[in-house]
Simulated scan of single mutants.
Amino acid sequence: MFVPISDNNPLRHLPFQYVTVALIVVNVFVYVVFVSGLFADALETTAYTFGLIPAVFNDYRELPAQYAVVPESFTLLTYQFVHGGFLHLASNMLFLWVFGDNVEDAMGHWRFLTFYLLCGVAAALVHDFAQPQSVAPLVGASGAVSGVIAAYLMLHPNVKVWVLVLWRVPLRLKAAWVLGFWVVLQVFSVLTAAENESVAWWAHIGGLAAGAVLVVFMRRRGVPLFDRGLVTAVPPSRS
Rank of each mutant, 00 (worst) to 15 (best):
I5C: 10
D7Y: 02
D7P: 02
N8T: 12
N9F: 06
L14E: 01
F16Q: 09
Q17N: 14
V19Y: 01
T20L: 01
L23H: 10
V28I: 14
F29V: 08
V30I: 12
Y31T: 01
V35W: 01
S36H: 11
A47P: 06
L52F: 09
N58F: 11
L63N: 07
L63K: 11
P64H: 12
Y67L: 04
P71A: 03
E72C: 05
E72T: 15
T75Y: 04
T75G: 02
Y79P: 03
V82D: 06
H83P: 07
H83W: 09
G84D: 07
A90K: 09
F95N: 08
L96T: 14
F99M: 10
H109D: 07
W110K: 11
T114W: 10
Y116P: 02
L118C: 13
G120P: 12
L125H: 09
D128S: 15
A130G: 04
P132S: 11
V135Q: 11
L138Y: 14
G143H: 08
G143Q: 09
G143N: 10
A144K: 12
V148M: 08
L155M: 07
L166C: 04
V169Y: 14
P170S: 07
K174L: 12
V183G: 03
F188M: 11
N196Y: 05
E197Y: 10
V199Y: 03
V199M: 03
W201Q: 02
H204C: 03
A210Q: 00
G211I: 00
V213F: 15
V213G: 05
V213C: 05
V215Q: 01
F217L: 09
R219Q: 02
R221Y: 06
R221I: 05
V234C: 04
V234G: 06
P236E: 02
